[in-house]
C-alpha cells in the first residue's frame, strides 16, 4: 500500500521513495461518487472508452469487452460521455 501506516521515523531522508513505480499501489477508486456500469449486449467493442479514460484504468477482456478497474476508477464519467452507443451509465455509489 501507499504507506498509510508509516510513522515519521519510518521515512527515508528527503521523503525519497525507494520502490520504483509504487504509485500504482495508490488507491484512487475511493475518490469515486459514481461508478460506470455497461450493457455489453449493445457494446460494439470500439474501445473509445479505453482511449479516453484519463486514469488509464480500463482494460480489454478476453471477449473484447472493456471494463474499468474500480481500484483506480475515479468515476469521472468520461467513458460514459464518449461512448458512441451510450452503453455506459453512471450509478451512484452507496455506503456499504
Amino acid at each position: 500500500m501507499g504507506g498509510e501506516g508509516l510513522g515519521w521515523k519510518d521515512l527515508e531522508i528527503g521523503f525519497v521513495v525507494t520502490e520504483p513505480g509504487n504509485a500504482s499501489s495508490y488507491k484512487t477508486g475511493d475518490w469515486r461518487s459514481e461508478r460506470p456500469i455497461r450493457d455489453n449486449e449493445r457494446c460494439i467493442k470500439c474501445g473509445l472508452c479505453y482511449i479516453y479514460c484519463p486514469e488509464a484504468c480500463i482494460h480489454e477482456d478476453e471477449e473484447g469487452h472493456f471494463e474499468a478497474d474500480l481500484y483506480y476508477c475515479k468515476g469521472c464519467g468520461i467513458c460514459a460521455h464518449e461512448c458512441p452507443r451510450n452503453v455506459i451509465g453512471m450509478v451512484e455509489e452507496k455506503e456499504e
Partner: peptide, 24 residues
C-alpha cells in the same frame, strides 16, 4: 538505483514528513 524524489504527500503522510523534517 532509481528512486522517486519530491513525491506527492497526501493527508495521511504529510504530517509525518513535516515532523521528520522538523526533528532533523
Amino acid at each position: 538505483k532509481p528512486v522517486s524524489m519530491g513525491c506527492y504527500g497526501p493527508p495521511f503522510i504529510y504530517s509525518e514528513t513535516k515532523k521528520a523534517q522538523d526533528v532533523a
